[in-house]
Design a protein around this nucleic acid. Structure first.
Length: 521
DNA sequence: CTTACCTTC
DNA sequence: TCTAGAAGGTAAG
């Protein structure tokens, strides 16, 4: 039997769709939750034939109960046409290998190890004593009891921990960095330590004797419908490379600067190329559609325009061509923070201005995009009335605290409701794209591409060198065509834009110009 | 602001 | 001595 021929049922998926916040993990939990007379299932070793039959009958009843609930809540199509069809897609992704340059990974591990030893020595020298750099408790003693740095900055407000102690968080160290060399050393040490432990040694430990990894993909672990990955979490590998200065103990030589890029360790097999297809600003486009905000819609009518670049150039007062990638990322963070309900306190941290200025910024943003504000208010009001919200394809999230007397809990539920509608809708679109491309590949005689990973709005494939151009066209047009899904009565008010890039490692992808034409087979 | 996973203490 | 959870990091939007 082929993977694409699967026609199965999955009570775990049903249970998750009905209540994604509490994905009853095992058979027994599902029985308890959804069946009137749940039978306890005995331990495996003591099972008699009759008990197995009883268990199977319970399973049959459970599935029937779940299916009927799905139908009554309008979740049937999402279950059958999306989630069940994702099973073979995820299975094929999980079965496949992702080749890793293990030797390069080992070399970087050593490099970062020596760099950390150097930083440790510098830190001990700066502190005038030995201490464990990874221990926030010991660092607190050095910074505030020995060096008493907090006494030199009474005009600044240093962050405190939950227990009213001096914090050693990044924000605190940034405040202290001009007073003493130690904070800067700690900041660099932490950055390198993080990369080494999680993204270099962590990846190595996922490989054991192999020289490839294959993540585990989880379908029911994210409430909004996104998928997640573990061992390793492929979706969290750093996007930006890290610069490490390496001291050379050769007289007359400058220190060498080495760039460490975990993504560059992932390489396609011989004769193949990585191809990535990215839905551009997908949540913001969906927000434009869902809110019908004329100003936001107008921005997206120009297919070449990059909203975040535009806003960054506007806010920072530089020309659009001179917007750095950091500026763009910054603008992106600001936009999503505001639309998902960040308070002036948090926003001021992101913007780097006072809370009063942050509040003014928030007001003027929401005034500019009036219908976005309207959409937020309508979504919240609707959720208060019904107790749940829906995504574009009918995915559902019940917000148990939406009418809570606890102000904090209620506000959080309101933000979660708004976030769900947009993030959930984006997840719907991305999954639909994965399924359509999977089906296309399954029936194609000429294409042999394989899905490597999904990074929420981005699909990463491994493609035979000779098929890159053809596959790029297929992927781009398939993804962009989701602007209209007649069967589901979805007609987006904004065009979808997909950027395609390719490369011989995941760390060195460059944009691919795909001619606008219908794919031909 | 939201959604995850991973590491350290 | 062991472990659950908090804090702080990464990603995605």
């Amino acid at each position: 039997m082929t993977l694409e021929g699967c026609q199965i049922q999955d009570p775990q998926l049903s249970g998750w769709l009905l209540d994604p916040i509490d994905p009853a993990t095992c058979f027994q939990d599902l029985l308890n939750k959804h069946c009137r007379n749940p039978r306890t299932t005995p331990a495996l070793e003591s099972k008699k034939v009759s008990q197995i039959i009883t268990g199977l009958y319970s399973l049959y009843k459970l599935n029937r109960e779940l299916c009927s609930k799905l139908q009554s809540q309008g979740l049937w199509s999402l279950y059958v046409d999306m989630e069940l069809k994702m099973i073979p897609v995820l299975a094929s992704m999980e079965v496949g290998h992702i080749n890793v340059d293990k030797e390069a990974l080992r070399r970087t591990s050593d490099l970062l190890g020596t760099k950390m030893k150097q930083l440790e020595q510098e830190a001990h020298k700066a502190a005038g004593q030995m201490f464990l750099l990874t221990s926030s408790t010991q660092l607190r003693t050095v910074l505030f009891e020995k060096l008493r740095l907090h006494e030199q900055c009474e005009n600044k407000k240093l962050p405190k921990t939950i227990n009213k102690q001096q914090s050693t968080s990044e924000a605190a160290l940034l405040q202290l960095q001009d007073l003493h060399p130690l904070p800067k050393i700690i900041l660099e040490y932490r950055q390198i330590h993080k990369i080494k432990s999680t993204f270099v040694d962590g990846i190595l430990s996922c490989m054991m004797t192999k020289n490839y990894i294959s993540s585990t993909w989880h379908q029911t672990s994210v409430v909004t419908g996104r998928i997640s990955a573990s061992h390793p979490n492929f979706q969290a590998l750093p996007r930006q490379p890290l610069q490490v200065t390496r001291k050379l103990f050769i007289s007359g030589k400058e220190d060498a600067v080495v760039t460490v890029h975990p993504r560059a360790m992932f390489i396609p097999k011989e004769g193949w190329t990585f191809l990535s297809a990215d839905f551009c600003q997908v949540e913001l486009r969906l927000l434009a559609h869902l809110s019908s905000d004329p100003e936001l819609l107008r921005i997206f009518t120009n297919p070449e325009a990059d909203v975040f670049c535009m806003l960054a150039s506007q806010w920072k007062g530089v020309s659009k061509t001179e917007v750095s990638s950091e500026d763009r990322e910054h603008a992106k963070r600001i936009v999503y923070s505001v639309v998902y309900g960040a308070g002036p306190e948090r926003l001021s941290g992101i913007l780097g201005v006072s809370t009063e200025q942050a509040r003014r910024f928030q007001d003027s943003f929401l005034q500019t995009y009036m219908e976005v504000q309207n959409f937020i208010q309508k979504t919240v009001a609707d959720c208060h009335k019904k107790g749940y919200v829906l995504s574009i394809m009918g995915r559902r999230r019940t917000l148990h605290n939406i009418n809570s007397p606890d102000w904090g809990a209620r506000m959080q539920a309101e933000r979660q409701a708004v976030n769900f509608v947009v993030q959930g809708s984006a997840a719907d679109l991305c999954k639909m794209a994965m399924i359509r491309i999977f089906n296309l590949l399954s029936t194609s005689n000429s294409l042999s591409a394989r899905l490597i990973a999904q990074l929420h709005d981005e699909l990463l494939y491994e493609v035979q060198d000779s098929q890159v151009e053809q596959f790029a066209a297929v992927v781009k047009s398939t993804m962009e065509s989701l602007e209209r899904i007649d069967q589901l009565n979805i007609h987006l008010k904004v065009p979808l834009k997909v950027a395609v890039s390719s490369g011989k490692s995941w760390g060195s992808m460059s944009e691919l110009i795909v001619p606008q034409s219908l794919p031909s087979f």
